[in-house]
Design a protein around this nucleic acid. Structure first.
Length: 815
RNA sequence: GCCCGGGUGGCGGAAUUGGUAGACGCUGCGGACUUAAAAUCCGUUUUCCGAAAGGAAGUGAGGGUUCAAGUCCCUCCCCGGGCACCA
């Protein structure tokens, strides 16, 4: 019998079946355990790239595995359709962003379907459609009413030549990407969402999220950056208002030798009016982009303002400086500098020859030279007046009490987390539903006027948003007083759309934001996506889910119960990208080998969380395996139907293959369900196939044992290579489809063995391998190990000091 | 600069709770089949010494803990991700 493996035909058969049966369309069923399996939805950038194929396949494998576990699985797909690339394409090709986006969606949807993903396409969402974004406009107006959104000035990258705001990505080495002009920091009014109102909840709940990787939770903790400290006031010469600073180290207060404020700080701006040198320095500080990494890596510079603050305890003058490393957006935009006990302050003091004073001594009494290097640890206070001798906590409490009793300071909690600025000066996004009235100020668009629809047929020039030039969009009547007013032309950060789409999949056609179906499906049981989203997207989504909860829209607080962060796809050690010219087109590979081979290689080449190094020959190897797999099943089928397995009549070889089969089922079940190490699951399948290939037993029971092994492999590989397994399962004589089959079950009785192999070490070095009875006790194992010829060579003439026996594993003899 | 990962043969990776380093696959090499090639199949493939049996070294570098370290601790180097307007 000769039936060659023809992936195109096989994959068509399987997909036709799933389509005809609507295998992946689901509705709520309260009698069944639901499993909501979700991938971070893609931006429709053009065609699928290998990074997409990887994450989509990982999620699909989990969805199909959970289905075989009996779960009621929902796996939807949609499009994060707003964003800058559509505008860039519009400028380049003179195509409206909407048209470009919808064409990409059609292209990518078709590719996904060719890959056979188990999506419920009836739930498809595109965020650029008014029926989607109207609900986030609505939620924004609700948040407005609750005081959860507000407007304030905030810094953007300004391109002075193109007269437009740039994204950080559009700033290359401090210059605009098109104009090459030096970028400036500029402050403009923008809308903010009060994510800090949920800071404590977002932080505390991380301790109760066992389904998330520790690394992501740690990153989020650090990002939120809760710190307990003291807010202190320093009187300033010639100012009515004192200068307020936040510190987590009030114990170092007596070591303050200068203070520093941000370039945007009012004190700096007032000093600039009197002193042109300061004004010039502040201008220089603003000649940089707004990215924090730029600020943190550039040379630390400062200038004395010629103003003194008064040390609140010693009464001594403390010079005020303006410094480029102080962030206006963190704390109060001013810091007290303690060069003796802070690394950055120390470096700055050395550079500008400012005094360095030691006020903390090591707790162990050792000597340090503060002029040589800073001392950062907690310790005992010295040179601190009445507070000498106190430890960190004692000093913290005493100094906090001192300030609080005089009303010059207070204990407070500071967060590194800042409120979320959601305004973007861009066209291709959700219009912010606000109207500016000369009398009524900013007014939210009333519910009955939503959605504020983004006009789709526009020309994009790259010089600011085209909405500003559309009077029919901008000019409106004030909803409150009816006077002539102007509509907001900024759009939302696209992270707003991606902060709630997961809930909308539950009820994509609802004529409210979310209905009761969201409570059936939410939270997402398994969320999969790139680790690059570990902070922003995942934190915003956790915030939005809580806002929706508090609005009564959803019961869940956390949106994602389990999180899997997958690594990038690399080629020649670098991320695949058009810029580097190292991309591999999935389409060509599918045409050559079929979808199953591409899926298999993706799962086999690396564990999902690690970067995956692309290998053309590895793909060919995956294809070879599928051909052998196909051939092995057909050979078995060609020999006719297998008889029923009679477990009690098996000989040793038959028992051994059967043991291998059930060991493999146990291993792959663990790899798929718990560890998500699909690469080792594939390797274990290959090992079992190799064992079947070596096995040569034409007896009735021999073929039955073989058949059992093959059926197990077909089922266990079906989440990864569903098409070939669909056909093979039918070839094996099953009338029901593989997609409806249950996951194979381990027969514990098949796992038992009379003898086990153990290794013998002498002084930790491997010297022999022995086979011992499975039920042998430690002494017997030790004796057998000592008796080994090669072991004797190494212990000859030496004292055996100790013998360690780890049953089932090894013996270590120490001489 | 700060936070989070990672570093194991020629290559991708395995080693799950501190217990046989290199599973599985790729590549290379040797062989079978073939008029030939492709495809397929078999063998072999960490390095060094050895005919072999066997031995020595070995998981980015340097220290430490332990009967035993790729795995735990300390210091350092390199690579990747994030740093709030890329998505």
């Amino acid at each position: 019998m000769d039936t060659p493996y023809q992936p195109d035909a096989v994959e068509q058969v399987a997909q036709d079946y799933w389509d005809a049966e609507r295998s992946f369309e689901v509705t709520e069923d309260s009698d069944r355990d639901k499993f909501y399996c979700l991938t971070m939805f893609p931006y429709p950038s053009g065609k699928l790239h290998m990074g997409h194929v990887r994450v989509l396949t990982i999620s699909d494998v989990i969805a199909r595995y959970q289905r075989m576990q009996g779960k009621h699985v929902m796996q939807p797909m949609g499009w994060d359709a707003f964003g800058m690339p559509a505008e860039n394409a519009a400028i380049k090709n003179n195509v409206p962003p909407a048209k470009w986006t919808y064409a990409n969606i059609d292209e990518m949807r078709g590719q996904m379907q060719r890959l056979g993903y188990a999506y419920d396409w009836t739930r498809e969402i595109a965020t650029c459609k008014p029926e989607y974004y109207r609900w986030e406009q609505w939620l924004f107006t609700r948040m407005f009413d609750k005081g959860l959104v507000y407007r304030k000035n905030s810094v953007v990258n300004w391109d002075p030549v193109d007269q437009t705001v740039l994204a950080n990505e559009q700033v290359i080495d401090g210059r605009g990407w098109r104009s090459d002009a030096l970028v400036e920091r500029r402050e403009i009014p923008q809308w903010f969402m009060k994510i800090t109102a949920y800071a404590d909840e977002l932080l505390d709940e991380l301790d109760r999220m066992p389904g998330w990787p520790d690394s992501v939770k740690t990153m989020q903790r650090n990002w939120i950056g809760r710190s307990e400290g003291l807010e202190l006031s320093f009187p300033v010469d010639g100012e009515d208002q004192p200068l307020t600073v936040f510190t987590t180290r009030p114990d170092t207060l007596f070591g303050v030798t200068y203070m520093a404020v941000a370039a945007e700080h009012p004190l700096a701006e007032r000093a600039a009016k009197k002193n042109p040198e300061v004004a010039a320095f502040i201008e220089e500080c603003k000649q940089t982009d707004a990215a924090e990494a730029t600020l943190e890596t550039m040379e630390k510079k400062g200038m004395a303002l010629g103003i003194n603050a008064i040390h609140p305890m010693t009464g001594e003058p403390v010079p005020l400086w303006v410094a480029n490393f102080v962030l206006m957006s963190y704390g109060t935009g001013a810091v007290m500098a303690v060069p003796g006990h802070d690394a950055r302050d120390w470096e700055f003091a050395k550079k500008y020859d400012l005094p360095i004073v030691q006020v903390i001594a090591p707790a162990d009494g050792s000597d340090i030279d503060i002029q040589e290097s800073e001392f950062l640890d907690h310790g005992v206070l010295v040179n601190s007046g009445d507070y000498d001798g106190l430890d960190f906590q004692g000093a913290f409490d005493a100094i906090a009490d001192y300030f609080e009793s005089r009303d010059q300071g207070r204990r407070t909690i500071n967060y590194r987390l800042r409120d979320w600025g959601v305004s973007r000066q861009r066209y291709w996004g959700t219009p912010i539903p606000i109207i500016y009235c000369p009398d009524c100020d900013a007014v939210p668009v009333p519910e009955e006027d939503l959605p504020v629809v983004l006009p789709e047929d526009v020309a994009v020039t790259g010089h600011g948003s085209p909405l500003k030039d559309m009077p029919e969009f901008v000019n409106v009547a004030c909803p409150v007083c009816g006077k002539d007013a102007r509509r907001e032309t900024d759009t939302f950060d696209t992270f707003v759309e991606s902060s709630w789409y997961f809930a909308r999949y539950a009820c994509p056609d609802a004529d409210v934001m979310l209905d009761e179906r969201a409570d059936y499906w939410m939270p997402v049981d398994q969320y999969t996506g790139g680790v690059e989203h570990a902070i922003l997207h995942l934190l915003y989504s956790r915030f939005f889910q809580r806002v929706m909860r508090d609005e009564g829209l959803s019961e869940a607080s956390e949106p994602f119960t389990n999180l899997l962060t997958q690594g990038m796809v690399l080629k020649d050690g670098a991320k695949m990208s058009k810029n580097k010219g190292n991309t591999v087109d999935p389409q060509e590979l599918i045409a050559e080998y079929g979808a199953d081979t591409v899926r298999l290689f993706m799962m086999f080449a690396a564990p999902p969380e690690q970067a995956l190094e692309w290998s053309d020959s590895g793909v060919a190897g995956s294809f070879r395996f599928l051909k052998r797999f196909w051939g092995a099943v057909h050979d078995n089928v060609a020999d006719g139907p297998a008889v029923a397995l009679d477990v009690d009549s098996l000989n040793d070889e038959q028992k051994e293959l059967r043991r291998k089969t059930h060991q493999t089922i146990a291993k792959i079940s663990d790899d798929m369900g718990r560890r998500h190490t699909f690469n080792t699951a594939v390797a274990a399948s290959m090992e079992l196939m190799n064992a079947i290939g070596r096995y040569d037993d034409d007896s009735a029971q021999g073929r039955a044992v073989c058949r059992e092994a093959l059926e197990a492999v077909v089922l266990m590989l079906s989440p990864m290579v569903p098409h070939i397994c669909h056909v093979l399962w039918a070839n094996l004589g099953h009338s029901s489809a593989a997609i409806d089959a249950d996951w194979p079950v381990v027969d514990e009785a098949a796992l038992t063995s009379e003898m086990v192999d153990m290794v013998v070490q002498v002084n930790g070095k491997l010297r022999a391998k022995i086979s011992v009875a499975a039920d042998a006790d430690k002494d017997a194992i030790g004796e057998q190990a000592l008796a080994d010829e090669n072991v004797q060579r190494f212990i000859d003439g030496k004292d055996v000091r100790k013998t360690i026996v780890v049953p089932g594993r090894l013996v270590n003899i120490v001489v």
